[in-house]
Simulated assay, not measured.
Amino acid sequence: MLIKKPVITIALSLFFGAALPAAAAGSGASLQAAHNDVSNVASLQRGARNYVNYCLGCHSAKYVRYNRLAKDLGLSEDQVMRNLMFTGERPHDTMSVAMRPDDAAHWFGRTPPDLSLIARSRGADFLYTFLKSFYLDPTRPTGVNNTVLPGASMPHVLWELQGYQKAVYKGESDAEHNAVHKEFAGFELVQKGSLTPQEYDLFVRDTVNFLDYIGEPMQLKRQSLGLKVLGFLAIFFLLAYFLKKEYWKDVK
Rank of each mutant, 00 (worst) to 15 (best):
M218T: 14
E199W: 00
A61L: 03
P197H: 01
L230A: 15
S13Q: 08
E183V: 10
H92N: 15
P155K: 08
F242L: 10
K170W: 01
G28V: 07
T94F: 10
V229L: 13
A48F: 00
V229D: 12
P112I: 00
Q219P: 12
A29M: 10
D37G: 06
V208K: 03
L225M: 14
F210D: 00
L189D: 10
E77K: 10
N83H: 08
M85T: 04
K252W: 15
G151M: 06
M218I: 10
D78Y: 10
V52C: 05
L31D: 02
C55K: 00
I214M: 01
T9R: 13
M218H: 14
K228F: 14
T111P: 07
V64M: 07
A167N: 00
L211W: 05
T9W: 09
Q191F: 07
K221Y: 13
D37S: 06
L31Q: 02
G57Y: 00
N83M: 02
V190C: 04
Q162N: 11
K5D: 14
G47Y: 02
F184R: 03
P112E: 01
C58G: 04
L202E: 15
F203S: 04
K166C: 08
P217L: 02
E188N: 09
L75H: 05
D93H: 01
L2Y: 06
K228W: 13
K252Y: 15
A23M: 14
S96D: 07
C58A: 09
K192S: 10
Y164P: 02
F242G: 05
V64Q: 06
A124I: 02
S76W: 08
M95Y: 04
L243N: 14
F187V: 04
Q162S: 12
V144T: 10
T87F: 03
N67P: 11
K166N: 08
W107E: 13
L2I: 05
V190W: 04
R122L: 14
V80H: 01
S153I: 12
V80Q: 00
L127W: 01
R205N: 13
N53V: 01
P155L: 08
G171Q: 00
A29S: 10
A34K: 02
M85Y: 03
S133I: 06
R205P: 04
A29K: 07
L189S: 11
V204S: 06
F242S: 10
W159R: 15
V190T: 07
F232M: 12
S13N: 09
P141T: 03
D206H: 06
M95P: 02
L161H: 05
Q165C: 05
T129H: 08
K252S: 15
D125E: 03
E216V: 07
S173M: 13
I3E: 15
